[in-house]
């Protein structure tokens, strides 16, 4: 954390923006993986949960300004509750119905926001960055005498959120929740017969996953300062959050991290060198190539390579 801040004066602003984007995708990929990778339930609505986070911040910023940390908590609660609600209504059905419902959820939410003029409707809304709170400024002032810029502050915040998300995924994976989810993924009826409380586990996973996605969206309005529904519900978010865990490998906590770093950096380079439409195209192609040629992702490749050497 200190390293990011200390490098401040020597690195151009672009690298902070790029780092922020990659960290955001690590958080989203990790959150998706808690339900998708461990439990085998595909969520197509990541962009919806992310946008709930964005718009929670926008609404709170308009009616009752507060420190970003509390806005993130509010976003986590809202997105978590939406996840819980969607899960409660559809997780009793076959898994594919949950997937289709999440797809529907994102579009219904987008239509609501487009028609909601308080948050700018389809035209979007400008957001004014609040000042960094005095306590935090004093804390950073201890490391860097000149203090830090708002973007640097957001990067530090994102580093913390990333650590939190990965730690949460790790904890789920190693606990009874993760073992139960793996049993559901492999054979749901067998798991239920052996006494795995499958609905409860799936609801825990959906709520956690949704809450973390919402938290990832909460700082986004301050990062871009202008948000419209097309950005908040962007296709890039939905695709990347699925592609990154699947390319990295879904069975472990580090798969999505590897996938997000690989695809995230590749996209940053491609956006600069070619175009942003082309880079999304390449993400799609990579996703399909990995699914067909290496269905266990980078983690699977590394594992079989290790096994081959023994």
């Amino acid at each position: 954390m200190a390293a990011t801040v200390l490098l401040g004066p020597y690195v151009s602003e672009y690298y902070y923006l790029a780092t922020y984007t990659i960290l955001q995708f690590i958080v989203l990929g990790t959150a998706w993986n808690i339900l998708g990778g461990y439990g085998g339930y595909v969520n197509f609505g990541t962009a919806g949960f992310f946008a709930i986070g964005c718009y929670t911040t926008i609404v709170l910023n308009k009616i009752f300004p507060m420190p970003l940390f509390f806005e993130m908590l509010a976003a986590a609660v809202t997105a978590g509750l939406v996840g819980l609600g969607t899960g409660y209504l559809t997780l009793r059905l076959r898994g594919v119905f949950f997937s289709i419902a999440t797809l529907a959820l994102a579009i219904v939410l987008q239509t609501l926001v487009v028609n909601w003029s308080f948050v700018g409707g389809a035209r979007g809304v400008y957001v004014i960055r609040p000042p960094i709170s005095g306590v935090l400024m004093a804390f950073f002032g201890f490391f860097v005498p000149n203090g830090i810029s708002y973007v640097q502050f957001l990067v530090v915040l994102m580093v913390a959120l990333t650590m939190f998300a990965v730690l949460a995924a790790w904890a789920v994976e190693k606990s009874w929740i993760g073992i139960g989810l793996a049993a559901i993924r492999d054979d749901e009826s067998a798991a239920e017969t052996s006494g795995v409380p499958s609905l409860r586990l799936k609801l825990i996973a959906t709520t956690m996953s949704g809450a973390i996605m919402g938290m990832a969206g909460a700082p986004f309005p301050y990062y871009v300062t202008y948000v419209d529904p097309a950005t908040a519900f962007g296709l890039a978010i939905a695709v990347n959050s699925i592609a990154m865990p699947l390319v990295g490998g879904t069975a472990t906590w580090w798969g999505p991290v590897v996938g997000a770093i690989l695809l995230g950096s590749a996209q940053q380079i491609l956006t600069v060198t070619i175009s942003s439409a082309a880079n999304l195209f390449i993400v799609g192609v990579l996703l399909v190539v990995f699914l067909t040629a290496a269905p266990r992702g980078v983690v699977g490749i590394v594992r079989s390579w290790k096994r081959g050497r023994k």
Binding site: F44, R185, I242, G284, L291
Partner: peptide, 15 residues
Amino acid sequence: ESLQGLAFFFGILFI
């Protein structure tokens, strides 16, 4: 089919 297959169709749609 349920995880990779579904994501595959999503990838095709996107491409």
